[in-house]
């Protein structure tokens, strides 16, 4: 049960954006900007951005964000959708590019303690072809999901347990993007 009275029965972040539309607006705009666009020189695809979001949410154990962004990533990866679950269960053996693995390592450090993002792991990502924009976007995506995860869990919002609910959410996120709920 949520810690405060939200006056709606939507799940996760949607319930919070409906409760407080004034803060919901920039929160949804930020998700749209980060997950459906990139820095001018960024090479990350929308599917890869969703995978970073799901990965950070899984490290923070925020089931709602993990499941919904994993579903969006699966939808956007299409036939390669299995890579999402392989990444979340064992990133080391997932069939990802070495560049994306290097960026996920940066994401992991941002999530645990951003002061541990070292010049060494940034250089390693660059050596695999990551651009300035890729590094920037990975750090900001990770930091942003550390916010969303804390917001969603910190107020104990409703987390559906039925996987079908997330498949529908993933398709909506993959097609319509992030539209503020009303």
């Amino acid at each position: 049960m949520p810690h405060i009275q939200l006056n709606n029965d939507a799940p996760g972040i949607r319930s919070l954006a409906i409760y407080r539309p004034d803060t919901g607006k920039p929160l949804y705009e930020l998700a749209q900007a980060l997950l459906r666009a990139g820095s001018p020189d960024s090479t990350l695809t929308d599917a890869e951005r969703e995978l970073i979001a799901a990965y950070v949410s899984s490290l923070n154990c925020t089931n709602f964000c993990q499941n919904s962004h994993a579903a969006a990533a699966r939808y956007l990866y299409g036939e390669q959708g299995d890579v999402v679950d392989q990444t979340l269960s064992d990133v080391g053996h997932a069939p990802l590019s070495t560049k994306l693995k290097a960026l996920l390592l940066i994401a992991e450090h941002v999530t645990h303690d951003a002061r541990t993002v070292s010049s060494g792991i940034v250089a390693a990502a660059r050596a695999e072809g990551a651009t300035d924009g890729d590094i920037h976007d990975t750090v900001l995506l990770s930091a942003t999901f550390c916010m969303y995860n804390r917001y969603v869990d910190g107020l104990a919002t409703l987390t559906p347990t039925d996987p079908a609910a997330y498949a529908a959410m993933g398709e909506r996120m993959g097609t319509l993007g992030y539209v503020q709920p009303t």
């Binding site: 919070l16 450090h109 941002v110 951003a114 750090v139 930091a143 550390c146 107020l155």
Partner: peptide, 20 residues
Amino acid sequence: HDTVLIAALFCLYNKYVDGM
């Protein structure tokens, strides 16, 4: 609500500033 969201927002800022 505002306390949780301000705290969460500053985790974003702090991680962005330190991570870069």
